[in-house]
Design a protein around this nucleic acid. Structure first.
Lengths: 211, 211
DNA sequence: GTCTATATACGGATAGAC
DNA sequence: GTCTATCCGTATATAGAC
């Protein structure tokens, strides 16, 4: 049983609907999208959505779970790789995030929203089962690093900062672009710059927390 | 005509409805809140909402505009104050943001969402009219500072970073709290720490961008 | 599998009594 | 000003033809 390719050659109707749904849901959020929007976007009729997925909510859940799993897997792959240094991992994470976000700028707001709407539902449904966080390669590297450099700041801060610096500009891009007058291309160029800048910034921040 | 106090002593029905609406809208977003939810939250009947505000959308617009104006005014007051240094301004901004967000943790996601849903509508409606950004006290201070320190990084990056580091943890708090097991109080304690940390981090980041 | 037509439910808004 | 009852558009979901 060979795995389904990420980009379908001959997407089935079911996949076309799913793709359309993903686009509309991420653009407008769950409550504001109508099944009619999805039907229109997919090129098929309203009735087919229920034929394949039974309900709007079930379709939404499927898409959401796929999104989060894809995301979690890719991140886990990076943070639990023993062969890279802590600093390299930060660089890889940032690059990975930003590449993904340039292609799918609506995803973070979408995910944050829906997790906020019902935190338990989604997080439990995904379940980063197994794997204690402290056992991750990156956690062990951090401990050694923090001990050597006498760093006293809570690592949760660092984690939040990495994620914040990479993701937030995309979440705020409508406001940022409006106030600055930047085009999409100019905005994306700034994000490309950040791939190099953020890792440097993060290390500088960590150093500033040294005793 | 004396200004209305921020916290009403004897709130009128109209104000009670408005308060209820603000709570529900910020919690669930525009599309997902039903006028019935607002009625229930306010303790009054559905019909009264239309009696006072004509429609769900008008009520929403009023609340949104009040939110943004309050926010913009307070920020403008800080960034255009000639009597404080650049570094002090950053500290004040961060403290101000975090204090506000600890009290109203749902606001950022709410605002980001609604701005994203219709960027023009809200931004134009508020209109930070007049005041060219380059004329702000903070902009002039930045120019002098950047020239003296030979800083080459685009100031938009710095701006994004300040906002990201302060706001993002609140936007992501459901995920953060779920994964770390932190209570609300513990989370807020971390945010208090950040009031001191972020300004230091920002300055360290800026220094790392020096030639 | 895919469509058209329709049943059913829900939500915003209003009429009208008090 | 505040309530109950209701209208009516719209959205989800389904039945049934092809």
């Amino acid at each position: 049983m060979k795995p389904k390719p990420v980009i379908e050659i001959n997407p089935s109707t079911e996949d076309k609907i799913k793709d359309a749904a993903r686009r509309v849901f991420t653009r407008k959020g769950y409550a504001a999208t109508r099944t009619r929007d999805i039907a229109e976007e997919s090129g098929f009729n309203l009735a087919l959505i229920n034929y394949y997925f039974r309900s709007k909510e079930k379709l939404f859940d499927i898409i959401m779970v796929e999104h989060l799993q894809l995301f979690i897997h890719s991140v886990m792959g990076i943070v639990n790789e023993p062969g890279t240094t802590l600093e390299e991992k930060i660089g890889l994470l940032i690059s990975h995030y930003i590449d993904m976000l340039v292609k799918n700028p609506n995803i973070p707001l979408f995910v944050l929203n829906e997790v906020n709407a019902d935190p338990k539902k989604l997080i439990e449904k995904i379940g980063v089962r197994g794997m204690d966080h402290n056992e991750l390669a990156i956690a062990k590297q951090w401990k050694a690093f923090a001990a050597a450099k006498k760093i006293k700041v809570n690592p949760i801060h660092i984690l939040m900062n990495v994620v914040a610096l990479a993701i937030f500009p995309f979440v705020g891009s409508p406001i940022i672009r409006n106030r600055t007058g930047l085009s999409i291309d100019q905005f994306n160029a700034l994000m490309e710059e950040r791939k190099k800048l953020i890792p440097v910034w993060i290390m500088a921040m960590i150093d500033s927390s040294t005793t």
